[in-house]
Amino acid sequence: MYKYVLKRLLFLIPTIFGVAFIIFLVMNITPGDPARALLGLSAPQADVDTLNHELGYDLPFLQKYFNYLKNMILHQDFGRSYFTKQSVFDEVWPRYVITIKLALIGVLLSALIGIPPGIYTAVKQYSLWDTIPSVIAFFIAAIPAFVFGLLMLFIFSLKLNWLPSFGATTVYHFIMPTLTIAIPPAAQVMRFTKSSMLEAIRQDYVRTARAKGASERTVIWKHALMNALLPVITQVGLSLGTLICGAVVAEKMFSIPGIGSLIIDRILYKDEPILLAGTILISICFTVVMLIVDITYAFIDPRIRAKYTTGRKE
């Protein structure tokens, strides 16, 4: 098992190299440069060129690429932002933490909100308790994150004055953004859980459990659910990607200083150091989450666990 985890973590390295390459490539191809963005339209070209040179922007892109990797690996130096001149790490890290908090809480919430109704509608299939929640989920899943966010702002900040509309300092500030990120995907989770449960309930081992004299509740919550949750967990983990994008929207809507909005703001300034650090950190987060999902799956499902351990299979 440890060998497997290690192997996966080692894959991070080529991933980072690849991400950095793509960012440098894209920055290289697109028009514009940081000095012009910083100095404004009226500045003479000579000054723009000087500043670009000072920033190190005008080097050939492969050289920039290797320099960046070298600095990152050997000196743990992520450089300075072209825009604010501050240390990239100091700028990026706190914002990264906030976005990760948002996204992870969002993922958890989407699971917490989505799974119980999914189970319930599966158990009560075809009845009203199934139709009504399913229809509601259908609509919610179709609402884009920013509309949802605006809706929440409208109701909770504007009309009811219950929650603050911007910032990221107190717990109250996190309620609406995390719900905005979590609820539309929760609808998906619910539908997926429902279909997974329906399948599980129809399995023979459920019939065996009933034949043992287990109560319906035990049958559902122990036997069916344990098996139904496996694909659901994978799906929830995979949805992290969507949630990180949703986090960007939430950051803009609720003025939360997260890494998504940072990256978007700095693209126009071609602030390469920040963009690199940001995207690399996000890819690392992604990879780690995928790994955790896989490991969790192995934990829960003994058939998968057998594949990862060099175990004895009888």
């Binding site: 081992y205 459990a209 004299g213 344990m226």
Partner: peptide
């Protein structure tokens, strides 16, 4: 009565057991 005074064995053994519980646990449950 189920499982206790009247018990049933089904046809397909491949799918009659819960794949994520140990065999011992499944017997113990009964």
């Amino acid at each position: 009565i189920r499982g206790n005074r009247i018990a049933m064995v089904f046809q397909d053994p491949m799918t009659s057991l819960n794949p994520v519980m140990t065999v011992g646990d499944q017997i113990a449950e009964a």
